[in-house]
Design a protein around this nucleic acid. Structure first.
Lengths: 204, 204
DNA sequence: CTATTTTTATAATGCTCAGCACATAAATAG
DNA sequence: CTATTTATGTGCTGAGCATTATAAAAATAG
């Protein structure tokens, strides 16, 4: 799939692309897309801007790659609970508590890059906002699938509406990330998540 | 409190300050603080920029006034339910459904200016972000007071923790506004809110 | 070696932004 | 009337922004 290295000529790249991408991801995660300037990226990645453009295309393209890395390394570990745990309450509980760990891992606390990474208000034709909206839709689809699977398997009451319930969980998840960046204590976030799951998935 | 109009001299103001502020509020509500330029404000308010600075001080001061107007005219009507309705479930339900009406009243749909009005990520020393954080804290305090009052009055089970429950409601509220700007149907938002209240405030 | 290719570093581009200086206009006070 | 006060309209300023033009540097191919 990658071009053979034997026919490559010219000056070799002097930096580690993956490492630079990771630095960019952390910076975007801290400051958001609009809040991150190329000057900051240059400093954090340790590369001058023409090299960034040569390696990643544009600031938008770099952000998209950073979000993909973020999802793979920061979101996926927690969200895998939705595929692995059959009990819905425990699955969502594990997903939420795992996400909270990521939110409070740094100081200042960061929310979810997919939820908060770009300005949420604004009329139209903003490609970055649309891109993050798409990613959020994937989150929703994944929650619906998890709930539907449990209903089909008979481990979850079939009078639950997976779409409405997934909306509730996703709204709560998004709200949690805002509480996180507003400085909420980890313990408070955990208590909220526990209570939410207890009440929301109580099978009476 | 206001200076007497008899000693006022000089050319009178040619525009209606309250009307101009309302136009600014609507524009900030649509595009957020960072997403709104002075050029847009000039066009929407129908005043040239020196007049805006003379009447409102700065873009930041104007935004603060706009947020206060927003809270008074758009938030307060729905949130008064928390003071007026004694049954907690009905109070929160009414507050959420009323807020949803505001979120979907325009196209494209707008979330809550207090929640989404300024970039949520970013390290420190951002006066506007801190200002909105303060406003959110007022929301939280108000929710806690409502729940505590119900517990004291004996209409709400005292084994509920008002702070944790208020966190849950506020998180859900914040998440709802994101779903709104992501284009969720009004009916879907209402169903989520109904289910959330039903489960969250179910007294068994 | 020379020619070619690719990545670096410097520095500039064109643009938008918030805010303001200045002169003019329109009102009142005496 | 004249002097004074306040608001308006034009156009500027300096900073910051993403992006790129240019040329030097560092590698390989023959």
């Amino acid at each position: 799939m990658t071009q053979s290295p034997s026919i490559r000529r010219g000056r070799p790249r002097s930096f580690d692309r993956d490492k630079a991408l990771r630095e960019a991801m952390l910076l975007f995660w801290e400051n958001g897309y609009e809040g991150t300037s190329m000057a900051q990226l240059v400093e954090a990645m340790g590369i001058v801007s023409p090299s960034i453009y040569a390696a990643f295309g544009s600031k938008e393209d770099l952000f998209r790659e950073a979000v993909r890395l973020y999802v793979a390394t920061e979101v996926e570990p927690a969200w895998q609970a939705l595929d692995e745990i059959t009990d819905v309450q425990q699955a969502v509980r594990t997903m939420l508590l795992g996400s909270i760990e990521a939110f409070v891992a740094t100081r200042p606390q960061r929310g979810c890059l997919v939820v908060l990474g770009s300005g949420l208000l604004g009329g139209a034709d903003d490609t970055i906002r649309d891109f993050l909206r798409e990613q959020r839709q994937h989150f929703r689809d994944r929650l619906v699938k998890c709930l539907q699977r449990a209903i089909d398997a008979g481990t979850f009451r079939p009078d639950n509406d997976p779409w409405v319930l997934a909306d509730c969980v996703l709204a709560f998840f998004a709200g949690l990330t805002i509480e996180a960046v507003d400085g909420a204590e980890k313990a408070a976030l955990r208590e909220s998540a526990e209570l939410f799951c207890l009440r929301m998935f109580d099978e009476r």
